[in-house]
Write a protein that binds this DNA or RNA. Sequence first.
DNA 1: TGGGATTTGTTCGTATGTATC
DNA 2: TGATACATACGAACAAATCCC
Lengths: 84, 84
Amino acid sequence: MAIDPEGDIPVYVQLADLLRGQIDRGEIPERRPIPSKRQLVQEHGIAQGTVERALAVLKAEGYLKTVMGRGMYVVPAGERRPAG
Amino acid sequence: MAIDPEGDIPVYVQLADLLRGQIDRGEIPERRPIPSKRQLVQEHGIAQGTVERALAVLKAEGYLKTVMGRGMYVVPAGERRPAG
DNA sequence: TGGGATTTGTTCGTATGTATC
DNA sequence: TGATACATACGAACAAATCCC
């Protein structure tokens, strides 16, 4: 499923849902980095700020963890601690 | 205390801390709107996106609640439900 | 020791859409 | 209708951390 900029659902929510689904289905392995922001921007044709926002959602949910200068890593399901 | 763009703390965090402090001290009454985004942009000389980000933090913490077209309202302490 | 490439984090400026008053 | 206010999205730029040669 591709991102639909014309849809009723905000692009950043669509991207967050997309990545969350890929993680839940194991298409992105645990303890491995997701595609870089630059890649996500190019693949989906959206702005960096929008990607940032989607990733912020997944970080808040505990799905992702940042390793500076390296990437955003998938947190194993048993180790997720939603921020709040 | 004013926002310091040169400091080590990100501007959006400084603004979130500033507003949270004003709310905690009762300087912004509960069930009342905080200054509008436009006002915050002008008063602190920062960008709308940065203000957005600070407000997103306080919304996630349950301090603020949006009422479309009217403003961002302070949630009474006893009613705060952090998102997560 | 140094430099370049990659990646995340932050900030700014601007524009459009939608809702309220 | 017009003014105000929030939500979303785009484009651009720079800093810091990391990696590799």
